[in-house]
Amino acid sequence: MISLQRLTKHFGSQVAVDALSLDIPAGQIVGLLGPNGAGKSTTLKMLTGLLVPTSGTATICGHDLLKDPMEVKRCVGFVPDSGAVFESLTGLEYLEMVAALYGIPAEAARERIRQFIAFFDLSFDTLTDKLLGAYSKGMRRKVVITAALLHNPPVVFFDEPLDGLDANAAVGFKALIQTLAREGKAIVYSSHILDVVERVCDRVLIIDKGRLQVDGSPAELVALHGARSLEQLFTSLTGGDDLERKAEDFAKTFRP
């Protein structure tokens, strides 16, 4: 479903993503982990056509990222970490606009929207009466997730999807992506919430400084590296293994 071949992105002299190569099959939930600046969001933006690679390429559902970008975009859904929307539209106007861009008939689009808002426990009146600029962060995130899934894409990219969601919505969302994977969708889940990734993802990729460090199932990686948890493995691989000592030293500055 997803294949990267030495995918690379430079910003001037800075290498954000460095010759990343990997394959992701249908039905798999892949956790994409890395510290800030590791290249996670840059990778997702290249795979969704928002950034042009410096070199290398990728295929999504058999379509070349550079040669056939429109077909790639038809195959993917994307929830960006920004949660950006057109704030001067109501939620319904925004979702109907997204549906029209994907060529979904108006009646079918309205029915899918109703199904999603029922799942997220949103009021239809809220979608029609309030502009998106007045939505809470969590409500806006629900609309963005709905927009990403409206056209039933075979590949879905999530960048910090739980940001702003309340506890019940987060539980529902985790169940949703597991269901989508069982239906054969390939899902890439980028997050800093490591315990959620460990519970939900079939496979974990940890990147640092744009390079792939490890690739495997959470249990396999923890066992292979002799770590107590995915969190400990992550910190040891990305230079954070002395965080507890740093925290203790910092706390001492507040003591009389």
Score class of each variant (00 low, 15 high):
4 L>I: 00
5 Q>R: 13
5 Q>H: 09
18 D>V: 03
18 D>E: 11
27 G>V: 05
30 V>R: 01
34 G>T: 01
41 S>A: 05
47 L>T: 10
47 L>R: 08
51 L>R: 10
53 P>R: 01
54 T>W: 04
54 T>P: 13
55 S>D: 13
57 T>V: 12
58 A>F: 07
59 T>M: 08
61 C>M: 13
63 H>T: 01
65 L>K: 06
66 L>I: 11
67 K>Q: 15
69 P>A: 02
69 P>N: 10
75 C>H: 09
80 P>F: 02
82 S>C: 09
94 Y>L: 03
96 E>W: 03
98 V>L: 07
99 A>E: 02
101 L>M: 12
102 Y>F: 11
105 P>Q: 01
106 A>K: 14
108 A>E: 15
113 I>D: 09
116 F>K: 12
118 A>V: 12
119 F>M: 13
122 L>Y: 06
126 T>S: 13
129 D>A: 13
129 D>Q: 15
131 L>I: 09
132 L>E: 00
134 A>E: 10
135 Y>F: 11
138 G>A: 11
138 G>Y: 04
144 V>C: 03
150 L>K: 07
150 L>E: 00
151 H>N: 05
154 P>D: 03
155 V>M: 08
157 F>W: 02
157 F>C: 11
160 E>P: 13
160 E>H: 05
162 L>S: 12
162 L>D: 12
167 A>K: 04
168 N>T: 12
173 F>M: 12
178 Q>R: 15
179 T>R: 14
183 E>H: 07
188 V>E: 06
193 I>N: 02
203 R>L: 07
206 I>P: 14
208 D>F: 08
209 K>H: 15
210 G>N: 06
210 G>S: 00
213 Q>N: 13
215 D>S: 13
217 S>G: 15
221 L>Y: 02
221 L>I: 10
221 L>H: 03
229 S>I: 06
231 E>Y: 03
238 T>M: 06
248 E>T: 12
251 A>T: 07
251 A>H: 00
